[in-house]
Computed example of a mutant assay.
Amino acid sequence: MRHVTGDATLRDVKFTVIATSLDPESRSAWLCALAARQLSAQGHGVTFLDLRSTPLPPFDNVQGEGGCYAHPNAALYHRAVAEADGVLLGVPVYNWGLGSGAKALVELTGSSDELRGLHGAWFDRPVTFLVSGGLDHGYLSHGAFAFGLMVDFRCVVNPHFVYATSAHWDGPEVPGAWLTERLERTVDRATDLSQRLQGREYRSTWEI
């Protein structure tokens, strides 16, 4: 886990940025690093997690020793999401959907069985997507995943998001002009959304 902290003078907004790709040269992870840098520069508190360096196990819903919930990083991710005023998810697109890392993350941190002392970390979180795809027409490949977060956890999904292909990068970790502007605007919208929703008194839970 890498912590990026700022002055926290802007209403003490806390963000969690999570890179979910396992690709060593992940472009969605580059987006996450750039977004975290922008948030930190604006004075926000940022927790940056990367599944490549801070891995999670496959979701098996098994309690106790040997199960996914006993993994040393499970509580770390759960807390990072639950305590955030906003979450930015870096996700790759494969086969017209998101990579398995994002799904495993939500499955593991989304459990809300109060009898087992668990509560879904995602309830009511503002979520912003930073998407890396291979083709321009995969633009809405994260749509089903985003809809699931809205329906299951009442997440407020930011309508401003990044979708970038290899053509939008000038080099490794160097975004082109269009991508630079798009990412900066998306992060600004994420900040605005999180600030406006900060301090809500209600807490959603399972209704069905």
Rank of each mutant, 00 (worst) to 15 (best):
T9Q: 13
A104N: 06
P57W: 02
R11S: 09
R125V: 09
V151N: 06
D60I: 15
L193E: 02
V62A: 09
R196Q: 13
L76G: 06
H168L: 11
A36R: 06
G199L: 11
L51C: 00
R189C: 09
L39F: 00
D23I: 12
G90S: 10
Y139W: 15
P175F: 02
A144T: 14
S141H: 01
L31R: 08
G101N: 00
A84W: 00
T5H: 12
C68H: 03
V17A: 06
E107T: 15
C32H: 06
T16V: 10
G120E: 01
L135K: 13
S111T: 15
V17N: 01
L89Q: 05
L98K: 03
L179P: 01
W30T: 07
R116L: 14
R154H: 12
S112H: 13
H44G: 12
D23N: 13
R196P: 08
V106T: 15
P55Y: 06
H137Q: 11
L197K: 05
L149A: 03
H119Q: 12
V106Y: 09
C68V: 10
Y77K: 13
I18M: 01
L49I: 08
N158G: 04
A82V: 08
R189I: 07
L22E: 01
A82W: 02
D23R: 14
R203A: 13
H142F: 14
G64W: 04
F15L: 11
L140A: 08
S204H: 06
V62K: 10
R185C: 07
R154D: 07
V151C: 06
R37K: 15
R27E: 00
M1Y: 08
S100P: 03
T180L: 05
Q198L: 12
E25Q: 15
G86E: 00
H142M: 13
G6V: 08
T16M: 05
H137C: 10
S111K: 15
D12C: 11
